[in-house]
Design a protein around this nucleic acid. Structure first.
Lengths: 233, 233
DNA sequence: GCAGCCTAACTGTGATCACAGATCGCCGCA
DNA sequence: TGCGGCGATCTGTGATCACAGTTAGGCTGC
């Protein structure tokens, strides 16, 4: 784990960002990026030391992540990335289908030109990575996430984006760990195709197709992950 | 603000609940109950003193509430209940319609007998309070909330319930403050009627009607609150 | 050589101290 | 009497200390 970047004081002035916020962001990125696998334990002191801060900001960041179930504290008081059971995975997937499906519809209705441009960039980056003979899972994961959130941000509903972020934070470790262990899913899965449909539909303002593409994208990934048998229970 | 209740040690053993958790719950209840009005400032030290704990657990609880925007920290570092603008209110209402509407549908599909019983109790309590000549806003607010969440819990999707709790935490101060200032809304508004429709539809497994009743309930309240002109912007 | 106990290290939690920045009020001056 | 500036106080944030509970490893005894 790398040290936290030292941000210029000017940025620090404009938008009060505490050390706790920075630690929170750092941990969040690692969770969403699949760098922290389900079941992995962590201690406040070790995280603090590796990030070059005291235990205090880490406590705050971890408390927030525990609050929205991105991390969990065992009865032994140990902190770890939650394990994913089949039941929890299916529940999260169902909620995602509703919430993100609505977001896709709404994005098709409200998108601005700048949103479409951002989506196109991410979509090309994802497709370029997926088409490689030996795709780098990390890059694919990142551009996949960026593409989805470019769509969600196009809704103009920050509350909705926040909710979806919470869902990704919970399901991210599994999604991305899975992608790292089975990089071939990038080719076999229809992710790229649904992404193309999604972007085109949002750009055309076709809400129904946008939702359908997103739903198929989520369902395809969920089916694949369930088929690997790596989920508990 | 009252002191935190001393819970029996047995409960404390079963489910590790830290002081920070208790402070969080205490503040959450006050926010959802409308005891803390939008714009109201609070200091960590004063909250800590009034709850009889040190500043430490309060910091953790407030950090969590700030994280999900139930509280906000101003550039001056002051902590307060966020003000509600018309734009934010409408955004929250739109998201609520989607998420809680889905929850109502799902509750109609998955409800158990015990869920229906809990809903009926809350519905009767609400109606009894609303029918009084001088209804106590606090009791009505409480049973209204309990009724809604009895429905949401009937979905069997704790993730969804958590999301809705986050939404209520943000919109609660306005909803409930409004009800306190305009207790006559209990009679004039069609809340009781939609509640009856909602409970009956969930019990009958009629998803479409359940959603419709809930949507009309939310929309009715939203219309009333917008009409009072107490929102900013 | 192996099993069991006991200690030492490590865990999160809470309290206290330290500090920089903002705010408000009081005092002095015109 | 009114205005301006300065200081005391209060704010959140970060660090450090203290502590109880757990865990894991090493040592002792069989």
């Amino acid at each position: 784990m790398t040290k936290l970047e030292v941000v210029p004081p000017s940025v620090d002035r404009l938008e009060r960002v505490s050390l706790g916020d920075r630690v929170h962001t750092a941990l969040r990125d690692r969770l969403m990026g699949g760098e922290l696998a389900p079941g992995q334990k962590m201690s406040l002191r070790s995280v603090a030391e590796s990030l070059g801060v005291s235990m205090m900001p880490v406590r705050e960041a971890v408390a927030r992540l525990v609050a929205d179930q991105s991390l969990e504290v065992l009865p032994n008081r140990a902190v770890r990335v939650p394990l994913m059971t089949k039941a929890r995975f299916r529940e999260l997937t169902r909620v995602r289908l509703v919430v993100e499906g609505f977001a896709a519809e709404e994005a098709a209705r409200s998108r601005q030109d700048s949103d479409v441009a951002a989506m196109r960039d991410c979509e090309e980056a994802f497709e370029a990575e997926a088409r490689k003979a030996a795709p780098q899972a990390e890059l694919a994961v990142r551009s996949n996430k960026e593409l989805h959130f470019a769509v969600y941000r196009a809704t103009g509903l920050p509350t909705l984006v926040g909710i979806i972020e919470g869902l990704w934070l919970q399901i991210g470790p599994v999604l991305n760990l899975d992608l790292k262990l089975s990089p071939d899913r990038l080719q076999t899965g229809g992710a790229a195709e649904q992404h193309r449909r999604l972007v085109a539909a949002v750009e055309a303002g076709d809400a129904a197709t946008a939702r359908d593409a997103l739903v198929k994208d989520i369902e395809g990934a969920a089916r694949f992950i369930e088929s690997t048998g790596r989920l508990l229970d």
